[in-house]
Design a protein around this nucleic acid. Structure first.
Lengths: 344, 344
DNA sequence: TTGTAAGCGTTATCAG
DNA sequence: CTGATAACGCTTACAA
């Protein structure tokens, strides 16, 4: 996969090695190593001496060598479906905040919602011997599962409650969220529903959310017309289109659940353009709360997921495992919240 | 900085080493190495033999060892001011897309808009011996500059046209963008202006955009009242507040340039709530185009920056340098575009 | 508190 | 086309 990037004498930072620092400081390399990793075990004067040489020559330790020797890197790998999506940004920030506090570094890639690409990435990441792996996905290829299981690297799956986690999970239940939204809408008295989401494909999270929604409706004795179920692309524009399509198919529809991305906001914009009143003429609910949902006119009823917290807990589980390898596989359900607003 | 994460016998993926694979395949480790990196240099039958052992035992090469030996990693470091911000997401995606194509991996952190934290991150990243570094920032501490210069690692600065790049730059001119927006608004006939941005602090990009705006107004013989210049927090809500504050200070203001984040959209929402007509009662312009700006009612005039392209070109410059170390420092201006819409 | 010795698992190099 | 050998720059383990 990696194409060759030239084979000339490669660039390298280390003009100065630990050995050289040691020589200049008149100590052994081991003492320099200690001065860096366990300064309290070095005599103050020696420490001072070493540190001054380090500063003088601008020595930057080589973690590649260090990692090989100690058999431990400071890299945590993260694979998300998409980097563009603001959705994942919150989680990434949570992960990053925790890792940074612990001197760990985040390696990140996107699978483009493709399981085969995820598999390739997992393999490439394992080659870097990361000290942890976080996957925003709970469905993997068989090969990927095997690699993960065999690797013995702490691994957190997130984005959905995984029934059979490879190792650890931190998430919320998309199915329950969908159900809860159905219950909310039913409780408001709506009877005729429409549903749109991003393309589901391999996306277990969306599938669950949708199925949960249908389940909730069924529980209330309501069936949704298959013609009123849509998959569309990303972006506000798609939300507008989804709205147009659904209302075109059944003008008497009373409530739409537009699950994912900012589809619901796009629908509200479309309503405004058409002069439709929300929720009097039609109710609209979304998922993934953010300040746009809150600021829209009317503000949009959504399901809120604790995305930042999920990032934080995912990273914390990795860090915890590093500190204590006997920690058992954990599965955390961080829940969700239906936020009722003016749009329903 | 890294706090100790336990010192027990560390976890490791490599149940199987190259040596072991070699033994099982009845060849030397070097042949296994070649089978992996330069398969065309290995006799087909030997290759087949080695590959089948690799599959059988699930061997995952250890890139840490490989990197140490070859003195070359496949890691590119990226430091952005914030991971949350959708702004950077586009650029990150561009970088990631290119790196992935070349078998490189992205290490990412956020500096939280803090130069000292950026410095610490640069140092930590250099310790990983990355094959490239991308900084979404052009102003650094003196120590950071020195490290970067001494490191000899390909480095791209972005986010603003750097007058004195450490190595390479890929960007657009925030100053020119500010000026262009001033010219646009002046050309529409507005005379009394207000300006709000996120907190500027060490953020050279925002400072330049603001100064460019003032410069453009001055060039048209227009002065902006210092009381009509504001700094606010992030988010739509802040945009609403900025609007409220500015209009409160001078009800006769005709046009607002809300530079940064989604401030302009927040202002438009506030107008809607107050029943003000845009642009008849007041014109509003923003920066950083995205589909929200486009979908708002009215759609918002903005400056559009080629954020995805910037990511792509940044990564390409790194990759290019890896392939040919004699490539000279490049500085690319990818420009920007004022997108006139209904809000002005 | 410091030092010595022995790797860590690859790849560069050169010989065959 | 294949192999032997010597690094790569650090840390672990043990000794002094």
């Amino acid at each position: 996969m990696p194409d060759s990037l030239g084979t000339k004498p490669p660039p390298f930072v280390g003009q100065v090695s630990m050995k050289e620092v040691a020589r200049l400081a008149g100590v052994s390399p081991m003492t320099v190593s200690r001065a860096l990793s366990t300064p309290h075990l070095v005599k103050p004067e020696t420490l001072e001496q070493v540190q001054s040489v380090i500063r003088a020559v601008g020595y930057v330790p080589n973690r590649v060598a260090g990692s090989l020797s100690s058999r431990r890197t400071s890299l945590v790998g993260l694979i998300v479906p998409s980097l563009r999506n603001a959705l994942y940004a919150e989680t990434i920030q949570g992960i990053s905040d925790v890792l940074q506090r612990h001197g760990l570094h985040l390696m990140i890639s996107d699978s483009g919602y493709c399981l085969e690409r995820e598999e390739a990435l997992i393999s490439a990441y394992l080659a870097q011997r990361p000290c942890g792996l976080i996957l925003h996905n709970t469905v993997h290829t068989e090969a990927a599962r095997q690699m993960l299981q065999g690797a013995g690297v702490p691994c957190v799956e997130t984005g959905n409650l995984a029934p059979h986690p490879v190792d650890m999970t931190v998430s919320y239940s998309n199915r329950a969220a969908g159900r809860a939204m159905a219950e909310h809408l039913v409780s408001r008295g709506y009877q005729r529903f429409g549903f749109a989401s991003l393309r589901i494909g391999d996306n277990e999270r969306l599938r669950e959310r949708r199925d949960g929604f249908f389940e909730g409706l069924r529980a209330a004795g309501i069936a949704i017309d298959p013609a009123m179920v849509l998959e569309v692309g990303e972006g506000l524009e798609s939300g507008s289109q989804a709205f147009a399509e659904l209302i075109g198919r059944d003008a008497s529809v009373q409530a739409l659940f537009l699950a994912g991305d900012v589809l619901a906001a796009g629908a509200i914009f479309e309503c405004a353009r058409r002069g439709l009143r929300v929720p009097q003429d039609i109710a609209i609910a979304g998922s993934d709360d953010n300040d746009l949902m809150q600021q829209m006119i009317p503000p949009i009823t959504t399901v809120r997921f604790p995305r930042y917290r999920i990032g934080v807990r995912s990273a914390e589980l990795i860090v915890g495992r590093l500190g204590d390898e006997t920690l058992q596989p954990a599965s955390e359900d961080l829940g969700f919240e239906v936020v009722p607003r003016g749009s329903t």
